[in-house]
């Protein structure tokens, strides 16, 4: 199963990003292969509807869980429609690695 974690930069030592639609980077973690991939968010500076566009990409990547700090009302509706699990963390001083280790254990 693939999980997306919003990140402030590329690399597992980078901090977690509390925003979803306007997160700087996305980390895709696959728990079957224990592999991490990073993608830059193309919609960071989109004037509007960043959340919705990101959800479209999330669906294309075949992800079933998203970990972020907050989701806008539109992104939430879409994610729910595609049966993607949303996880909201409030702690922004964690690195991507720490978050992954946490739910792997």
């Amino acid at each position: 199963m693939k999980t997306i974690i919003t990140a402030t930069g590329k690399g597992e030592e980078k901090l977690f990003d509390l925003r979803f639609g306007r997160a700087a980077w996305f980390c895709i973690y696959d728990d079957e292969t224990d592999n991490m991939e990073f993608f830059e968010n193309k919609h960071v500076d989109a004037p509007s509807g960043a959340g919705g566009k990101v959800v479209e990409e999330v669906v294309e990547w075949g992800v079933s869980r998203v970990i972020s700090g907050d989701f806008g009302p539109k992104a939430k509706d879409l994610l729910e429609k595609f049966d993607i699990q949303m996880v909201i963390l409030k702690d922004d001083c964690k690195t991507i690695k720490e978050i992954v280790e946490n739910f792997k254990s």
């Binding site: 079933s64 729910e80 049966d83 993607i84 699990q85 949303m86 996880v87 909201i88 963390l89």
Partner: peptide
């Protein structure tokens, strides 16, 4: 953490 559980899970 707060989360939802979609019907597929």
């Amino acid at each position: 953490a707060r989360f939802n559980i979609p019907k597929t899970m």
